[in-house]
């Protein structure tokens, strides 16, 4: 042990190198810790509340369940259409050139349940967007930057620790939206020991139409929402980052103009790839713009700046 001129005893060299190794290990797992911490923060608004929002549709599902007798359901009325129904995202079965849609009748609660679910989820999704994006903003550009970015972790990891939990919550919510849409539309049945979804869009003559497994979930709707989320979230992060780098030399009006142009560009590209994806039935095309945005975000976050000098 040696003494410095303040009369303090100093630690040995050995202990300081042990500490250094422990520190390195700690830095490595910080990213995971941060991600879990963020996930805990998001869990109420991103996992639990959406789950609660499926309750109305589960109640409806209960009604389908109760009245589960082939062809004798007093609550279901079938309408036959000669041509394809309006919404091309609807899953619809067809035979003999006819399309059939069934609806629950004489059960006034169904409409309310549907309305509650629809509006409820809209509110939840909007709130979730605002909450998640605000969280990223505050961490990187807002009041919390001084604390959260002081953590000895690379910016990329800090960002991914926000983005990935956010993405999980959003996809979970979109999945629940799709699921509750299904719950509102038809009943689950057991067919040959497997869970199947009784499609209300079926033929009168063939009885109830069945689809097995998870086919009944409109996955393309989940994909579309996910793509929209990625474009919005990553797009906003990238735009803010861009502005904060441009404000070295440029004044605000110029920066806002550029931001506006970039926004239009992103929106246009997203729309184009979305349409192309659906027309060519290549879901992967939808994620071209999000992936590009993710790369741009990571690059710009690495050398990011606060808005104010």
């Amino acid at each position: 042990m040696s003494e410095n001129s303040f009369g303090e005893k100093m630690m040995n060299e050995n202990t300081t190198s042990e500490n250094k190794e422990a520190m390195q290990n700690k830095i490595g797992s910080l990213g995971v810790k941060l991600a879990l911490r963020n996930f805990k923060k998001y869990i109420i608004i991103g996992v639990i509340i959406p789950l609660l929002m499926t309750i109305p549709s589960m109640i409806v599902q209960g009604e389908w369940f109760k009245n589960d007798k082939a062809g004798t359901d007093p609550y279901v009325k079938y309408e036959v259409y000669e041509s394809v129904p309006e919404s091309w995202l609807d899953v619809c079965e067809e035979k003999d050139g006819k399309y059939v849609i069934g609806t629950l009748v004489d059960w006034p609660l169904h409409d309310s349940m549907e309305a509650v679910t629809d509006y409820g989820f809209i509110i939840i999704v909007v709130c979730l967007y605002i909450y998640l994006i605000r969280d990223v903003y505050l961490t990187f550009w807002g009041k919390r930057a001084a604390l959260e970015l002081a953590v000895p972790c690379s910016r990329t990891v800090i960002f991914l620790a926000k983005f990935i939990p956010a993405m999980i919550c959003e996809i979970w919510t979109f999945f629940l939206i799709a699921l509750s849409d299904c719950f509102l539309e038809g009943g689950f049945k057991l067919k040959d020991g497997a869970i199947a979804m009784q499609s209300v869009r079926s033929y009168e003559s063939a009885g109830w139409g069945y689809m097995t497994g998870v086919d009944f979930i409109p996955w393309d709707s989940v994909c579309l929402h996910t793509m929209a989320f990625l474009v919005i979230y990553l797009g906003i992060v990238f735009l803010i980052s861009l502005c904060s780098n441009l404000n070295r030399k440029m004044k605000d009006p110029a920066i806002l103009s550029i931001a506006g142009l970039v926004t239009l560009l992103i929106a246009a590209l997203s729309f184009v790839t979305e349409v192309a994806a659906f027309e060519n039935n290549m879901l992967i095309l939808m994620f071209v713009v999000p992936v590009i945005l993710l790369i741009l975000c990571i690059i710009s976050i690495r050398r990011h700046n606060l808005m104010k000098a």
Binding site: M23, I27, A145, A146, L149, A150, V151, P152, C153, S154, R248, R303, H304, N305, L306, A309
Partner: peptide, 26 residues
């Protein structure tokens, strides 16, 4: 602290450029 990046010039803390290693000691 790396909350801003410089236009030009050099900053070194403890001999290292600004990054997560310097954040660890500041």
């Amino acid at each position: 602290m790396g909350l801003l990046t410089e236009d030009s010039g050099e900053i070194r803390v403890d001999g290292k450029p600004i990054g997560k290693e310097t954040n660890n000691v500041i």
